[in-house]
Amino acid sequence: MPDDLNLPEFPIPEDLRGQVTITTLDRIYNWGRRASVWPMFWGLACCAIEMIATATSRYDMARFGMEVMRPSPRQTDLMIISGTVTKKLIPQIVRLYNQVPEPKYVMAMGACASGGGPFKEGYNVVSGVDQFLPVDVYVPGCPPTPQALIHGFLTLHKKIAAQPIKAIPGYRKGTLEPLPIPVLGPDLINLRDLPRIPSAVPGSDPETA
């Protein structure tokens, strides 16, 4: 039992250290689950190569219990958006996100996933995956070095450790609504923007929109 699991207000006698701990359910539950986050094995672009490099021997993601990368969204906890998100791809990304079981986390790896990056001005580029998904950790860099990605993992671990179980949406009663999947129209259609679109159509009367 690591000492950091123990609540600081309950001192453990010297001879019982490492064997007994007094803690809360939140703490021990999060301690377990943060050390076995399974990322989704899905690379989008350049950053994916650094993500793979992080998994290889020099950086060794396995030290953080994260080496089990699953290609199926239904077996994963963490989506690493490792690259440029394009308009053509975002419907699939949102669909995959909806398939990941709760509790789920999203990491925006690199400049493109965080805000469009160098390609932001492009006509087919979504400027940041956070326009469509809730992002938990942003990792800066283009591409982030493996060290930066590991720092992102540790930040995610901290975030998980601090989450009260009751506050996690997936652990509550009732079903969660899936996120709306954007539609590929003449341009990308974010369904939340639907009421505003008619004003952008030439020849239409903006008053009726």
């Binding site: 129209g185 003449p186 341009d187 639907l194 505003r196 679109i197 008619p198 952008a200 159509v201 030439p202």
Partner: peptide
Amino acid sequence: PFGHNVSYPSEFSPEGW
């Protein structure tokens, strides 16, 4: 803001798409 430079064809209607 949204829409200004996005070119939609003139007959486009979001409901009918």
